[in-house]
């Protein structure tokens, strides 16, 4: 992958949706973390839904980013849900001994939306068109 900050952050209802589509180098990981927090503050979103279904690997660096985002989002009164972890990634996370502290993991985006709504009362589905199509405004598309 080339270029930093190519990962879009979408605002859907009161939820930030972050579809990670590429293998990220460390710089990109740190930049993404920063952008998510900036957007949380700017938009007042209450949930962060990070889709990692296309991530083929989560090492200690990315694992730590996910926990850090959850911890910082929590301070800003937002919940973080990670969706779509590949089975092989889940296995290596356990073997590495990483616990994604403060991060809820679910199988797919629909379940992530449901969790945010049912458990935390954070609505996003009204902005969804047929469940999986993001129609929210795209912020920071750079």
């Amino acid at each position: 992958m080339n270029g930093h900050g190519r990962i879009p952050i979408l605002k859907v209802g009161r939820v930030l949706v972050v579809p990670i589509q590429v293998d990220m180098d460390d710089q990109t990981v740190l930049l993404l973390q920063e952008r998510i927090l900036t957007e949380l503050e700017r938009t007042g979103a209450r949930g962060v839904l990070i889709d990692i279904s296309l991530l083929e690997m989560v090492d200690s660096f990315i694992g730590r980013m996910l926990s850090d985002i959850a911890a910082m989002a929590r301070i800003m009164d937002a919940r973080t849900v990670v969706v779509g972890m590949q089975p092989a990634v889940a296995i290596t996370l356990v073997e590495l001994g990483l616990e994604l502290n403060g991060v809820d993991t679910v199988l797919n985006v629909d379940e992530g939306i449901k969790l945010l709504r049912d458990e935390f009362g954070i609505g996003a589905e009204e902005a969804f068109d047929g469940g999986l199509n993001f129609v929210g405004e795209q912020i920071n598309p750079s």
Partner: peptide, 29 residues
């Protein structure tokens, strides 16, 4: 940047050698 290059190389080699996905993921990690 070389860290990302290294793990891409390793995944490609592991896949060419016929490792299953879970082992490709282990080696990449």
């Amino acid at each position: 940047r070389d860290i990302a290059v290294a793990r891409n190389e390793v995944r490609n080699i592991a896949s060419q050698l016929g490792f299953r996905i879970i082992d490709q993921t282990r080696l990449t990690t």
